[in-house]
Design a protein around this nucleic acid. Structure first.
Length: 607
DNA sequence: TGAAAATTCTA
DNA sequence: AGAATTTTC
């Protein structure tokens, strides 16, 4: 937001204002907004701010989760009606979700064709240089970033350790990026399967918080690729493709969120609603603590807790173990990721968990259980990773490091390990998990068939509720436990207040309180594709609002047409009034990709 | 050169 | 787990 109209074309770099907008202004902490104190309504807060500063223009960048889409649209309406010029931009993505369509003009339902299409499109415009000067008018005086309180004392304390390893800010983002493309990128294709972080870009938190522009990443990696291609460095070139692909996954997560507004809460494939999840809080706790008895899983969970980061592959390992072996409800895991990962990202994490839990057309097969032992030798052949995070196994020879339960007693003794005592036996045997999974799947298909039969018999009125996923309450106990642990350890969630998370969960209290009517209205009518500002950038802005509306209606129409043909069954129309019961009040996190050894809470990153 | 075996990859 | 690709003989 700028008090002066001189700041134009913010499409390239984010500005501080935009960053504020990403996670909702915390009005209650901002002295400049005393009038709006206690308000959690962004629109009211902005209105107040605009009035008090005399701003004439408002600029912001797009977000694609349902909460933001609705809210941002309201901002346009309300502030527009006040005579404020409101202009929004794409800054988070290479291409806007509504720009990427298949031959029939329909949104893709699978990643590969989506990404191939992206790669064939005209390259996104190169990022712009930052403006030489921003005339921030009254704004800088009345609410500089120093006045905004992003963490309280207890948060500050619990973040101290993480802060040592993490360097936020765009300069550091830039440094990390340069280091990556001049270093590990060339060997990315060879090294990417190793479990440790040395070979990954560790950029995901910077990307998440808008400290690094995806378009900049895209262009520079493309240039490297060209260079290596000319030198016929096949590996280097392939590394670039693979790395860009992980950027593509991030794009795709927004794409999915946009096309399926509930994808962070509901499985995209309808039958998953009938899966009989094992509601077992002991399993859940054991998983969180890294005491499952499977070394690779446990090492991952310990690393996650200690550093707030996990390699992409290990995210797949632990989450797939969670869903397939423990058969816990995936949204619990997603919530835990959200709480612990420093690159926690709603869209990316929802994509990841849906992929793992078999909810995507191109996801992993539901009936396939990955064997952590084999994965262990694949990603961590020498056992270094396991030894680093599980000191109790440090003296175990590599031969047994990923399956200590098979090791001869003498070997265990020599390594100082007593299974069941200082390292657990497998909490669930894989064979047992397999048969349990088979049973669960048959049950799921039976229920699904029964439900479909009933619907065909015209009984859908009677079972309106049953087609929603049965609500599985998020374990209460987790809240307390995490706070306890957080004060002892370092990680991210310590003392975080609920409001800080601002997870666009449709069921969050914030949402209900502030926007329920609007949202239900939004989801009720099928014409709701919430207000996608289309082609905003290069238009003179007089007619912009009008064009927006038209464009978004267009998009909506197209979307609805598509919706029928897709195999996804996302009963958006059911999400009304009470709004679908959700497992978790928050959501998830996960990025199929890079990360940073991250330090600091989410809320403290923003500065 | 072709079939069989081994390895790799899967969003 | 299974398809696709590469290596082996």
């Amino acid at each position: 937001m700028s008090a002066s109209p001189s700041m134009s074309g913010g499409a390239g770099e984010r500005t501080r204002t935009v960053v504020w907008f990403r996670r909702d202004l915390r009005v209650e902490d901002n002295p400049a907004l005393a009038a709006a104190r206690r308000s959690t309504d962004t629109v009211a807060a902005l209105l107040e701010l605009v009035r008090s500063t005399g701003a004439t223009h408002l600029f912001f960048n797009h977000l694609y989760d349902p909460l933001s889409l609705v809210r941002d649209h309201r901002v346009k309406q309300v502030l527009g009606a006040e005579g404020i010029t409101v202009q929004s931009f794409n800054s988070d993505l290479l291409y806007e979700p509504w720009e990427v369509l298949d031959d029939h003009g329909c949104p893709f339902t699978m990643f590969t064709p989506f990404w191939n299409t992206c790669l064939c499109m005209v390259d996104p415009p190169a990022p712009m240089l930052p403006p030489k000067r921003i005339n921030s008018g009254e704004l800088s005086r009345c609410c500089s970033s120093d006045d905004l309180i992003f963490e309280d004392e207890s948060e500050r304390g619990s973040n101290a350790l993480l802060a040592r390893a993490w360097s936020p800010g765009w300069q550091n983002a830039d440094k990390a990026f340069t280091a990556f493309i001049n270093g590990p990128l060339i060997d990315y294709s060879v090294n990417r399967k190793k479990a440790d972080s040395a070979n990954t870009s560790l950029l995901s938190p910077y990307l998440h918080f808008g400290e690094l522009s995806v378009r900049k990443v895209f262009h520079q990696v493309r240039m490297k690729q060209l260079t290596w291609s000319n030198e016929s460095n096949g590996d280097g070139e392939e590394g670039c493709s693979l790395f860009l692909r992980s950027i593509g996954l991030r794009e795709y997560s927004r794409y999915l969120a946009f096309n399926h507004p509930c994808s962070h809460e509901k499985p995209l494939l309808a039958h998953l609603r009938f899966f009989p999840w094992v509601v077992n809080e002991v399993y859940f706790k054991v998983w969180r603590q890294g005491r499952t008895g499977y070394p690779l899983v446990d090492a991952g969970m310990r690393e996650l807790w200690a550093t707030g980061w996990l390699h992409d592959r290990i995210r797949v390992v632990v989450s797939s173990f969670f869903v397939k072996v423990l058969q816990l409800p995936w949204r619990w895991g997603m919530k835990y990721f959200w709480d612990t990962l420093l690159d926690a990202d709603l869209e990316s994490d929802a994509l990841g968990w849906q992929y793992i839990s078999g909810s995507l057309p191109d996801g992993r097969e539901l009936d396939r259980i990955d064997n952590p032992q084999f994965e262990g030798y694949k990603f961590d052949p020498c056992g270094e990773y396991v030894r680093r995070w599980l000191p109790e196994l440090a003296r175990l020879p590599t031969e047994w490091i990923h399956h200590p339960w098979d090791a001869p007693e003498s070997v265990l003794q020599a390594a100082g390990i007593e299974l069941g005592s200082n390292y657990p036996l497998p909490i669930v045997e894989l064979d047992e998990a397999k048969s349990r999974l088979q049973d669960a799947l048959s049950e799921m298909w039976e229920l699904e068939a029964a439900s479909r039969a009933e619907i065909e018999n015209g009984m859908e009125e009677g079972l309106g509720d049953s087609s929603d996923e049965p609500p599985i309450a998020f374990p209460q106990e987790l809240q307390h436990m995490e706070v306890d642990r957080a004060t002892i350890h370092t990680p991210a969630m310590a003392g975080r207040r609920r409001a800080d998370q601002m997870v666009p969960s449709i069921t969050s209290s914030f949402f209900r309180a502030e926007t329920e009517t609007e949202l239900s209205a939004a989801f009720e009518s099928e014409v709701t594709r919430p207000e996608v500002p289309s082609q905003v950038h290069f238009q003179p802005q007089t007619r912009m609002e009008v064009r927006d509306e038209v464009a978004s209606d267009d998009t909506a129409a197209r979307y609805n047409g598509v919706q029928q043909q897709q195999q996804y069954t996302l009963h958006r129309h059911r999400v009304q009034g009470g709004i679908a019961p959700s497992t978790s009040e928050a959501s998830s996190s996960w990025t199929g990709r890079e990360g940073v050894i991250w330090t600091g809470t989410r809320s403290s990153h923003i500065g």
